[in-house]
Design a protein around this nucleic acid. Structure first.
Length: 383
DNA sequence: AACTCGTGGAC
DNA sequence: TGTCCAAGAGT
């Protein structure tokens, strides 16, 4: 469970360690607001006060760039303009609209949350911070964002842009993911958010982090807070925040088989406990490999999978007898900690009964399904 | 506290 | 080609 709900009125100005130029300096806030009024980008979710629309945008924006989100946001709101329409939708439609955006749990929880709001909040998005925070997929940041943007409540926010900005203002040398750093960042966020128009002010903080206080080569000369920045004062703006250590990437080779029978294709629905849960994929078989670590990468040296083995496994798992087995395409796909080389084969089979999670689809049906990213690429080549 | 979960753009 | 990174949440 999330911790330490913020206390909007619990922190006095004097309680935060501050100098003349500290975060409680009203000049700082005035400069930031003035800068924002001149430099704010015109983003779709800044044109609305609808908490539903703002909610959708915040979920989509989690770990996702603005440019990637915009077309998804437009399509999603066109299809599901309100909580009721989303709550009434079936999950496959929601996933289809989310396809390509990644982190699909967001879509499933968004859908669940809409149903919770419909059944438990009278269909109206809750305005109380603690109630917002209880909804699935909404954590401390997103609850604060919705509360401040949609309801203009004084709530602090810490996300990628603001975390970097705060870390530089404080010359914070800790990794941002550490609990000590998180405490400092939320402390500053709480101290800096004003009582007047906190939503606009939080947007201004994000905007400054996104466009001026960038990860690399920040444009300090254009920053309205240059005089308040401890990192700039010490010339550390390129050393803060300190990089986190990167996880080992594993190299994986798999074989996918596009099996056709009488114009229908065999797809598998991914299980709830695996990647791309609920989405459809071409059947895959593991390619035997011998992993070996090279530097920071686990490399799989894999001999090409024998056709006879693939045929046997498909028969055992799906009860399908494959006749031909031809090379099709190879897709390289990088996911969180894996670099997947997907050898795709094309095959023909007899149309036979298959049991869940497998199913046959004709081409028009297939293109309407929520497909995994590699499966979508394959489907496009088949069409 | 460390992992998991995706994808595409910038450099 | 590789590396970094994004309006995080859940476990």
């Amino acid at each position: 469970m999330p911790i330490a709900k913020s206390q909007p009125h619990g922190v006095s100005r004097k309680s935060f360690p501050t100098k003349e130029t500290g975060p409680s300096n009203p000049q700082l806030r005035r400069r930031l607001r003035a800068w924002y009024r001149r430099n704010a980008r015109d983003l779709p979710w800044r044109r609305t006060a609808d908490p539903y629309a703002i909610w959708i945008s915040e979920i989509m924006l989690q770990q996702t760039t603005v440019a990637a989100v915009i077309p998804y946001y437009q399509r999603f709101l066109a299809k599901f303009p309100d909580i009721q329409s989303l709550a009434a939708a079936d999950q496959q439609q929601v996933l289809r609209l989310w396809e390509g955006l990644g982190y699909y749990r967001r879509a499933r929880q968004l859908h669940t949350a809409a149903q919770v709001i419909a059944s438990q909040h009278g269909g109206e998005f809750p305005s109380e911070f603690d109630k917002i925070l209880t909804l699935p997929g909404i954590g401390r940041y997103t609850a604060g964002a919705i509360a401040s943007f949609a309801y203009d409540q004084r709530q602090p926010i810490v996300e990628a842009n603001t975390a970097r900005l705060y870390a530089r203002l404080l010359a914070l040398k800790l990794p941002l993911t550490s609990s000590a750093a998180q405490e400092a960042l939320w402390g500053l966020a709480q101290a800096i958010v004003p009582a007047r128009k906190p939503g606009e002010f939080n947007q201004a903080l994000i905007e400054l982090g996104a466009t001026i206080c960038t990860p690399r080569d920040p444009q300090c000369e254009q920053c309205p807070l240059i005089a308040d920045c401890q990192a700039h004062r010490r010339g550390w703006q390129n050393k803060i925040p300190v990089p986190a250590k990167k996880p080992v990437i594993e190299d994986v080779t798999e074989t996918a088989v596009a099996i056709c029978a009488n114009g229908r294709w065999l797809l598998i629905q991914r299980a709830a406990d695996e990647r791309w849960a609920g989405m459809w994929d071409f059947p895959r078989v593991k390619t035997p490999s011998h992993e070996q670590q090279q530097g920071n990468v686990l490399v799989a040296d894999s001999q090409s999978h024998r056709a006879a083995d693939i045929r046997t496994e498909l028969h055992q798992r799906l009860g399908v007898t494959v006749r031909s087995l031809d090379e099709f395409v190879t897709i390289r796909h990088t996911v969180t900690r894996f670099r997947i080389t997907l050898n795709c084969l094309q095959a023909e089979a007899r149309l036979r009964q298959v049991a869940h999670p497998a199913r046959w689809f004709d081409l028009p049906e297939m293109v309407d399904l929520p497909l995994t990213t590699p499966a979508r690429r394959i489907a496009k080549k088949l069409a």
